[in-house]
Design a protein around this nucleic acid. Structure first.
Lengths: 152, 152
DNA sequence: ACAAGAATGCTATGAATAATAGCAATATAT
DNA sequence: ATATATTGCTATTATTCATAGCATTCTTGT
């Protein structure tokens, strides 16, 4: 029988914010990856689609910068969305395109957003609404600094 | 000249805790990876070494479970630490070993912990001490649920 | 004691994310 | 106009983590 009461180890990482952040993020992402699998979407692809729907006509370079995805990495994601008929490219710049969701893309985006919302509900429901709010605010504050020091 | 004042996009992911978690975690990890590079350590390897130092004699299975690292993935990490003379295996179980830090391993662990502490200081210093505390507590609370639903 | 099941260490392998380098085409700036 | 930047893209690589399977050893239940 599995030993459910394994004695706890000392944890020298307990008070490292970065470590706790990573653990929670990894666990949350693993769950979300599972949930998005039924739509055949990776978490990253999901954020790209939602971003395009919310910002029709933007170029993939700008979408990528907003999501901290490099040009080299967003190209195949866009190609996949286009191949599946979820996104189309409209001429805009000669070297860049304006990205737009198709009707099917918008429907998929809605389903994906629902999956993400359900995931949030299930993953973070031990936090009271006010706690979720505080956490969100603290993360946003931390991100302003930490992300600002990095290039995209 | 780069356009430093790029107009902001609408962000439909702003209020997703999971997404914000991922962004902050990724940015923090990227920084930490950089800082640990001078010791030729990955973030994961660093946590393993610290964990062994804090829990001498434990098996790699238990260390791995505490860190949410699967058996298959921790094996090469331990091998690397052993090859570099930072950790030794003492007989214990016939099928498992007790892991102990060598003197060199302890010294390296101290340097690594210092790097991690400096990283925290630099990455999260926009948060006041009480905010850091609250964040840590909220993360711990979130983790208890979200991690509990997953197997190691 | 003994057979069935579980745990351990390990290898091999694959998937997802992200990083660098470089290319051709186009836009922008001096 | 000429140099510089930007864009989309390909190719390649590294890191982290996941699954599957193997042989060994420990632990159970009878």
């Amino acid at each position: 029988m599995g030993d459910l009461t394994e004695t706890a180890l000392k944890d020298p990482l307990e008070c490292f914010l970065g470590y706790q952040l990573r653990r929670v993020s990894a666990a949350s992402m693993a769950q979300l990856t599972n949930s998005l699998a039924r739509e055949n979407f990776s978490p990253v692809a999901a954020t790209v689609l939602l971003m395009i729907k919310a910002n029709p006509g933007e170029t993939q370079a700008r979408i990528g910068r907003a999501l901290a995805i490099k040009r080299a990495n967003i190209a195949p994601l866009i190609a996949k969305l286009e191949n599946e008929g979820l996104v189309t490219k409209t001429a805009s710049d000669g070297r860049s395109y304006g990205l737009i969701c198709t009707a099917q893309g918008k429907a998929t985006a809605r389903r994906i957003k629902k999956i993400m919302a359900d995931h949030e509900e299930c993953a973070f429901n031990t936090l009271r609404p006010d706690e979720q709010d505080r956490l969100l605010r603290l993360l946003a504050k931390a991100r302003r600094q930490i992300a600002g020091e990095r290039d995209s």
